[in-house]
């Protein structure tokens, strides 16, 4: 198996206006690699949701995107407050975002559900007071 290609991004927790830059960059990188456009769309949407979550809830974090021969893996890690009830957070429409966040068009309670919807697998590890790590995979045709 070919060695995976890894992209690493720091997500700035202070800057709402630049949120999404990492996802847009990943989209460009995957396009250059010749990844299928629907796979790129799914990866970048799932990653954007995670990125926004890290900005809204966790004060930023890191995003790793690993390109394997048969899948693309996204690992989002933060040291925010953690998710108290993952089952509840996974429900469409459930949100703890503030009114300010909602006025920007976020906080619809669709972030985690969209991440699950657009990926083939998603694992959430979260400890209250410690942080959250989310690992998502999107299957793809051989690209490396």
């Amino acid at each position: 198996m070919a060695e995976e290609l890894v992209f690493r991004f720091d997500v700035d927790g202070e800057d709402f206006t630049s949120a999404g830059q990492a996802s847009v960059q990943v989209k460009k990188n995957l396009r250059q690699l010749g990844v299928d456009s629907e796979v790129i769309r799914r990866v970048s949407i799932a990653m954007y949701e995670g990125e926004i979550n890290m900005v809204i809830h966790a004060g930023g974090g890191t995003a790793l995107v690993k390109v394997y021969p048969d899948c693309i893996e996204i690992v989002l890690e933060d040291h925010g407050p953690g998710i108290k009830d993952i089952d509840l957070a996974m429900q469409e429409g459930y949100s703890t975002a503030t009114d300010t966040i909602r006025s920007l068009g976020f906080g619809a309670g669709m972030g985690l559900p969209n991440m699950k919807k657009y990926t083939d697998s998603m694992d959430i590890e979260s400890t209250v007071g410690v942080g959250t790590t989310i690992t998502m995979r999107v299957n793809c045709q051989e690209v490396l």
Partner: peptide
Amino acid sequence: LLSWVMGRAKADTLWLTIMSNVNVLAV
């Protein structure tokens, strides 16, 4: 609602919205 749109809008379509902040561009 940006996440809602991102989850449902299809590629190569028009997106009609009253939101005009910079996050709209990312979505």
